[in-house]
């Protein structure tokens, strides 16, 4: 069964088509990568999937339910989470608080109960802290948990975003260029992390420029060029595809 299905998706900015007539589907429990030259529309696609941009046409299905046009927070509630290319860490909080925000969907205390700090709130707070610590541990961030996010180096902030998303227990995780700006060791760690995420039962949709990383971990690869689908298939097949080679070398 396919987890995510995109049908005839289109996005125009003014007269420019950033995405045109794009259809594909993502099977469950794999790492699915989207590659393409700069400006191919990869981040735009992510913004469409999470409805940060409204699609001009077409539809998106998640677990066979149409999610086109749903506000981002409702999409998140269905089990889609994402990280951002331009980091969107909450710099006004500590590392663990960032991840505790990720647990928002797995807890329920409202404003009034919080203000009164009812016993149930204290109980839930402990539970949330435990879940957040688990996610931090999974991403290797345990030792930084009480540090203010604003003081963490770039590489750790990227991991922190991943931990925050994982804390919401998504079915599908969208990762927007997680390796950008990382050195080789950090990239290797990231590679292991993504694999472990997938093994834990989360489908990963990856936008990435680092080809060796993509080819090493992906089960399927989709190539975008000028907002159109150029090719889709297993990595070995994509690497040999003459159109893909032309698109990359023809730049």
């Amino acid at each position: 069964m396919s987890l995510l299905k995109v049908k005839n998706l289109e996005k125009q900015f003014g007269g420019l088509k950033a995405i045109s007539d794009l259809s594909f589907s993502v099977p469950e429990n794999i790492i699915f990568s989207i590659i393409g030259p700069n400006g191919a529309g990869k981040t735009t696609l992510f913004n469409l999937l999470t409805n940060i941009y409204k699609p001009s046409a077409g539809s998106i299905f998640f677990k066979d339910k149409e999610i086109t046009g749903l506000p981002p927070f409702k999409i998140a509630r269905l089990g889609i989470s994402r990280t951002f290319q331009n980091l969107q860490v909450f710099l006004n909080m500590s590392a663990i608080e960032n991840v505790m925000v990720g647990c928002h969907l797995r807890s329920r205390t409202g404003l009034l109960a919080s203000a009164l700090r009812l016993p149930s709130v204290i109980q839930e707070e402990k539970e949330v802290r435990r879940m957040a610590e688990e996610a931090l541990h999974f991403c290797g961030l345990s030792e930084y948990k009480d540090r203010p996010a604003a003081g963490l180096p770039y590489g750790l902030l990227k991991k922190l975003e991943v931990a925050r998303s994982l804390a919401s227990k998504p079915k599908l995780l969208l990762m927007d260029e997680p390796a950008a700006g990382l050195n080789d060791t950090e990239t290797q760690e990231l590679c292991q992390l993504i694999k472990r995420i997938c093994e834990s039962g989360i489908t990963v949709l990856l936008v990435e420029h680092n080809m060796s990383l993509v080819m090493e971990i992906s089960q399927r690869v989709l190539v975008l060029n000028y907002g159109r689908l150029l090719a889709e298939g297993p990595p070995e097949q994509i690497q040999k595809n003459p159109d893909v080679i032309a698109a990359y070398l023809g730049e």
């Binding site: 940060i52 927070f73 928002h104 807890s107 205390t109 203000a115 009164l116």
Partner: peptide, 30 residues
């Protein structure tokens, strides 16, 4: 009340809105 809210799910949701509204939405916060 204010101290209690700061240290709770509701308070974190507020700080998240302050920090990045888009990220807050992606964490399921209305």
């Amino acid at each position: 009340f204010s101290l209690n809210i700061a240290d709770s799910r509701a308070g974190r949701a507020l700080s998240a809105v302050h920090g990045s509204e888009i990220a807050a939405q992606m964490m399921g916060i209305d």
